[in-house]
């Protein structure tokens, strides 16, 4: 059983345990850092590939719109920009709903993909796989259609019984479209 405690052995044991544990953790951290980054990168790459037409090179950058910073990836094929994948988010039903929104150079939404969400399984979580909802984003043209759910007078079909999730999704897409406008405005300035 445990030995009798006095100040000296208490301090020694606690310090030793903390030191050993922190160094073990530092070791494991260094060891797993590479795979963790790789896993995160792979996830982003997959999402970008899903939301944009074929490309061979991506470049990460950030843009500021309405005081919010957006991370985006400009994708190009043979040196020609094909579109931008914008990371955007909005508050959904159960927390932050993060999307990757692919917008081609003509300003149309090419496709969208959910990066992370906290929506209710079976209801709001359908925004990841409900075909009727996800398919409508393919080729969505924000200059012709209104980015709001039908209940609010827009052109987006909401998921049944999940209006809040659908609104958040729509808001995130609309944020991405705004970010896209800032991106192109910025590039025009750079090109001149």
């Amino acid at each position: 059983m445990a030995i009798k405690s006095n100040l000296k052995n208490m301090v020694i044991v606690l310090t030793a345990v903390c030191l050993i544990c922190s160094s073990v953790l530092a070791g494991v951290y260094a060891m797993t850092k590479e795979p963790i980054d790789a896993a995160a990168r792979e996830k982003t790459d997959k999402a970008i590939a899903l939301v944009l037409p074929a490309f061979d090179k991506t470049e990460a950058a950030t843009v500021e719109t309405d005081g919010k910073e957006y991370r985006y990836y400009s994708a190009s094929k043979d040196g020609e920009t094909v579109g931008y994948a914008v990371e955007s988010s909005a508050t959904g039903f159960g927390g932050t709903l993060s999307l990757m929104v692919g917008i081609t150079v003509d300003g149309k939404v090419y496709n969208t993909s959910v990066l992370s969400h906290g929506e209710t399984p079976g209801l709001g979580a359908k925004c990841t796989d409900d075909k009727a909802f996800t398919e409508q984003w393919k080729g969505f043209d924000p200059s012709v259609k209104t980015l709001a759910v039908k209940k609010d007078g827009g052109d987006v079909d909401a998921i049944t019984a999940s209006t809040i999730t659908s609104r958040a999704y729509t808001l995130a897409v609309s944020n991405a479209v705004d970010a896209f406008k800032s991106i192109t405005a910025q590039e025009d300035v750079n090109n001149e």
């Binding site: 988010s89 508050t91 039903f93 159960g94 927390g95 932050t96 992370s116 906290g118």
Partner: peptide, 10 residues
């Protein structure tokens, strides 16, 4: 932690 939000601002 940013990822674990329970209905918090984003």
């Amino acid at each position: 932690t940013k990822e674990f939000t329970f209905g918090l601002p984003s």
